[in-house]
């Protein structure tokens, strides 16, 4: 899911950087003092989750968890993802430094979309199966959106779009499913043990 250096064209890179800076700025502005540790914990979770590769049949996948981050953090997902992606890039070479802006945007925008789509419903859902469903939706939708955005960034840099998106979708189907299931379970779990995490006064997002 990380785009490396030297793949994207300059206009795409610059747009990505600009959008990411705007997003991180807006996210930080909306960040509540009390929610800083939560952002840090989820940022670390994202940072570590991407490093654990799970073998699945013919290939191996790693969790992304941007749906979960979006669902819980809202706009604060932008700074959280930016830090984690920056560290992944400098420590492990996952994605390039110049493409960092694009990568942050491709991960964070779906997270925020998931927040607007699923947060309210997941928070209100009384029944466990419904909570799981909204978690699942958030987790898998985030991957679908991210895949689309990555395909779009590659297309704008001059790659064949349709073929790319087909390939990427096929490759990411297992990720979507696993991601959805895990996010679903986490949401059910959080609703049981720490419902205030989801119900917390999310910085004026509603």
């Amino acid at each position: 899911m990380h785009i490396a250096d030297g793949v994207l064209s300059a206009p795409v890179l610059i747009t990505g950087i600009a959008l990411s800076i705007a997003g991180v700025g807006y996210g930080l502005q909306r960040l509540d003092y009390e929610r800083i540790p939560q952002v840090a914990v989820l940022s670390s979770a994202f940072f570590v989750a991407s490093l654990i590769h799970l073998p699945i049949g013919f290939s191996n996948i790693h969790l992304i968890l941007n749906g979960l981050l979006g669902l819980i953090l809202g706009w604060a997902a932008f700074p959280a993802l930016a830090i984690a992606l920056f560290l992944q890039a400098i420590l492990f070479g996952f994605g390039g430094i110049s493409s960092l802006g694009v990568n942050v945007f491709n991960m964070a925008l779906p997270a925020i979309l998931c927040f607007y789509l699923c947060h309210h419903a997941a928070r209100r859902a009384q029944h466990e199966s419904l909570q799981f469903l909204y978690g699942f939706l958030a987790g898998s939708l985030a991957i679908i959106f991210s895949t689309c955005l990555i395909a779009l960034s590659l297309f704008l840099s001059g790659e064949g779009f349709i073929r790319l998106i087909q390939l990427m979708f096929l490759a990411h189907i297992p990720v979507m499913i696993v991601e959805g299931i895990i996010t679903g379970f986490i949401i059910v779990f959080l609703q049981q043990v720490r419902p205030e995490l989801l119900a917390a006064p999310v910085p004026s997002c509603d």
Partner: peptide, 25 residues
């Protein structure tokens, strides 16, 4: 080294958290 880097990364994130606390304060 890989394990050290993972732990180091997590440490950085919490370091940034501290910085944000400081700024917010």
């Amino acid at each position: 080294i890989f394990i050290h880097d993972v732990l180091g990364g997590v440490g950085y994130i919490f370091g940034v958290m501290g910085l944000l606390f400081y700024i917010a304060k």
